[in-house]
Amino acid sequence: MTNIRSSIDDIIDLYRRDVDITLIRENLKLTPEQRLQKLVARAKFTHELHEAGRTMRQTQAAHRNSTKS
């Protein structure tokens, strides 16, 4: 069977050059459950960053309003 390549394969090959294989190796040392928990922890951290950013923007807006008046 011939392997038919498309232009998409060329783009994917470009991305493959930059894949950090060391990260993949480290991740493969974890069990599937540990990988899922790592994702959950990452989601929690991302959520906390978003909340912190929101609080900061609100504080800055309040500060700007108080200096205007």
Binding site: Y15, R16, I21, I24, N27, L28, T31, R35
Partner: peptide, 21 residues
């Protein structure tokens, strides 16, 4: 496309050394 590249690297024997699903 980037994810496909990463997924294909998961099949690469060089990436082995852990516990694939």
């Amino acid at each position: 496309f980037e994810m496909i590249a990463m997924l294909e690297e998961l099949k690469n024997p060089l990436a082995d050394g852990g516990e694939p699903a």
